[in-house]
Nucleic acid binder design. Structure first.
Lengths: 208, 208
DNA sequence: GTCTATACCCGGATAGAC
DNA sequence: GTCTATCCGGGTATAGAC
């Protein structure tokens, strides 16, 4: 009832073969073109623009991505994650590295950053295709960072006088918020402010 | 070249009288209707919807607001500020009160919150009418909060081991970020997390 | 000066031919 | 599986009635 399927359903499907091979490639081409178009022109990129890049007509896109939002969402799923998923793995770099990496990604791909914020807002509607995506995404990120924080509290790398889950949510909020501020004023030093915030999370010597 | 004026130019004009009286009232009606429509349906509210509420035709709106973005921006200028400008006055409540107030406003007017985020993203384009608005807004807020923080550092109400300007930007970022998270998951306790963040700003006993 | 009627354009969606 | 043709809806521009 909620989902009408028209395309070849390549996503989370088992290895496509035969007639689906070419379809998968086309889909990949379209995705790539959409990614580039949006990276350059932000969300204003029309289906026509994207179709032109691929060399097909606009309705052809519809065959692979039923609606424009579906395509935009696919673009987000493809790469935007890069800048964020690395925010809290217990191994390797701390979350500070993750924050800086995230900031890096944002400043280097303003078009995608803008798309992210725009879609994020649009996804408030339950009928938006991106709704489930964003909800799960935030939930997953929050959970991961929380676990990482709890671990750091055990090892003495994080202040223990505050709730790890709250600190995790605050961290994610700072990242998103700084991203927005930077979009409006590129002189905002995301990295420096992120590091400032990170220091706020340091363990407390004495908490009298 | 950039601005074509069609409407009566009531904004930042001296007290309208005579033939302008009615114009100002209509403008107010439209603004009110737009506010309500957006409060209910978010940014999806079309000019037609708004025109219907007022009881005029859709093109009539363009007489007062040349473009849709102009109207949306006017809506933001009207009320959204309520939830935020109170974030940092040195007198009366601390910024925590401001944060909670902001959170309150967000949760009570999700449609406006969504519009805020959406327009904020769209305003990245320099040709957007909202561009100057948002840029000035963030700049002003940052300045105000920074000054408030510097004052609190003097009075010993705020940790002095971090840059006040950076802390101010971080505060604003947390607010915006929490707002986004809440839009996607209403169970996120904005107030609690905001208070957690506020405690991170407390003065440090000993900074070994 | 205020507003309606009309018409235009663009973008996304759909139907059906090939 | 892909394209042509078409529709529809929304925002915008213009002409002119009151």
């Amino acid at each position: 009832m909620t989902e009408q399927r028209k395309g070849p359903r390549v996503t989370n499907q088992r290895k496509p073969r035969g007639p689906y091979r070419k379809s998968a490639e086309r889909r990949e081409q379209i995705l790539q073109a959409a990614y580039e178009a949006i990276d350059e022109h932000g969300e204003r990129a029309s289906l026509q623009d994207i179709a032109d890049r691929v060399g097909v007509t606009q309705p052809a896109l519809t065959y692979y991505f039923p609606t424009r939002d579906d395509l935009l969402l696919a673009v987000l799923e493809r790469r935007d994650v890069v800048g964020k998923t690395s925010a809290g793995p217990p191994e390797g770099g701390s979350m500070v590295d993750g924050m800086v990496g995230s900031a890096r990604h944002t400043t280097e791909h303003p078009g995608l950053a803008k798309l992210y914020v725009t879609l994020s807002a649009a996804a408030t509607d339950p009928d938006s295709p991106a709704h489930a995506y964003f909800r799960d995404r935030y939930r997953t990120l929050a959970t991961e960072v929380t676990q990482d924080f709890e671990h750091q509290q055990d090892t003495g790398d994080l202040r223990t006088d505050e709730n790890a889950a709250h600190l995790a949510r605050a961290l994610l909020a700072v990242l998103d918020g700084l991203q927005i501020q930077w979009m409006h004023d590129p002189t905002v030093d995301i990295a420096a402010i992120a590091e400032t915030f990170a220091r706020l999370l340091a363990p407390q010597p004495t908490t009298d």
